[in-house]
C-alpha cells in the first residue's frame, strides 16, 4: 500500500513574528521512516511543534494533509486522537500527576476519540507491564509523577513507552537521541524499531547521524533555513557526517 500518511506542501510558519519555516514540502508514505536532519536553528523543532499543534507556532502559508484530512484545522488533542504522536525533545516534568493516571487518561481519551471502548484499570496495567519490560523499565515507574526527577535517559524512555502504549499512525521523534548515553540510545532505538509497521510512519528528527545507525531510515531529508535542501537514501547521513552541513546550507562549517 503506497498511501501517503503525511503531505506537507509549501509550509511557512512563524514563531513570535519570525518566519522559521519557509516553504517546506515533504511526503511521507505509509510504513516508511524518514529522517529529518539539519543544523541548529534550521527549523526542525518548529516543524515538530507545528505538526503537533502547539500554540504560538503560526502557519502563515501552505498546507498539511494527514491521512487525507486538513491537519492544521485540528486541536492538539484531536491530532493525537487521530494517531499523531510527538516524542518531545524536552519532556515536561509534572509534579503530582502519576504516570499511570496520565497515560490511562491519554489511552482512553484516544480510544473514546476513535469510538473504541475504554481500557479498564486491569487491562491497562497488563499492557503497561509488557511495554515497560521491553524498555527495561521498573514497574514502580508507573506511580511516579510524570518525568519528575527522571534522568535524561529515563525521560526519553518514557516517551518511547508512551508511544508504544498509544500505537500512533505517525510518530514524530524530536531529537530523541539527545542526552542519551550509548546504552540508553540502544534501548530507545530498539523500542522505536519494534514499533515499525506497514501502517505506521515515522519522522525522526536529529542533529547527528549516530541515531540513524540504530534506526535506519528509508529516506533522509536535510533541512536548512526552514526548507528542505536535499533528500536521499541513508548514504546521505554518512556524507553529512563526513562533510558537515556546510555543503548543503551554503555556509562555512561552524565546527
Amino acid at each position: 500500500m503506497s498511501e501517503n500518511i503525511l503531505e506537507i506542501r509549501n509550509l511557512h510558519a512563524t514563531v513570535g513574528g519570525t518566519e522559521i519555516l519557509k516553504g517546506l514540502s515533504l511526503t511521507l508514505p505509509a510504513g516508511e521512516v524518514h529522517a529529518m536532519m539539519g543544523p541548529n536553528g534550521s527549523g526542525k523543532s518548529t516543524l515538530s511543534y507545528v505538526l503537533a499543534g502547539r500554540e504560538g507556532y503560526e502557519v502563515t502559508a501552505g498546507e498539511v494533509v494527514y491521512k487525507g484530512q486538513d491537519l492544521l484545522a485540528l486541536a492538539p488533542d484531536e491530532r493525537a486522537q487521530a494517531g499523531i504522536f510527538l516524542a518531545f525533545q524536552y519532556p515536561v516534568e509534572i509534579p503530582g500527576v502519576a504516570n499511570s493516571v496520565f497515560l490511562k487518561a491519554a489511552v482512553n481519551a484516544q480510544r473514546r476519540g476513535r469510538g473504541e471502548p475504554e481500557l479498564d484499570a486491569m487491562d491497562f496495567l497488563k499492557r503497561a507491564k509488557v511495554e515497560l519490560a521491553e524498555l527495561e523499565m521498573d514497574q514502580e515507574f508507573l506511580s511516579r509523577p510524570i518525568n519528575v526527577g527522571f534522568s535524561g535517559g529515563e525521560k526519553k524512555r518514557n516517551e518511547v513507552f508512551q508511544m508504544a502504549m498509544l500505537e500512533p499512525t505517525l510518530a514524530i521523534l524530536d531529537e530523541t537521541d539527545s542526552g542519551l548515553d550509548i546504552d540508553a540510545l540502544r534501548i530507545v532505538a530498539d523500542g522505536v524499531n519494534r514499533l515499525r509497521a506497514p501502517d505506521r510512519s515515522m519522522l525522526v528528527i536529529t542533529h547527528y547521524q549516530r541515531l540513524l545507525n540504530h534506526i535506519v531510515p528509508d529516506h533522509i531529508h536535510v533541512l536548512a533555513k526552514g526548507r528542505i535542501v536535499a533528500s536521499g537514501g541513508k548514504e546521505l547521513a554518512l556524507e553529512l557526517e563526513a562533510n558537515g552541513y556546510a555543503a548543503f546550507t551554503g555556509e562555512k562549517s561552524a565546527a
Binding site: G53, E55, A75, P76, A80, V92, A106, A109
Partner: peptide, 18 residues
C-alpha cells in the same frame, strides 16, 4: 503551566480533562 497543558493534550487528553 502551558508546557504541561500542551504535553497532556499532545497525548490526546482533551483540554478540560488536562
Amino acid at each position: 503551566d502551558d508546557d504541561a497543558l500542551f504535553y497532556l493534550m499532545a497525548r490526546g487528553v482533551p483540554e478540560a480533562e488536562a
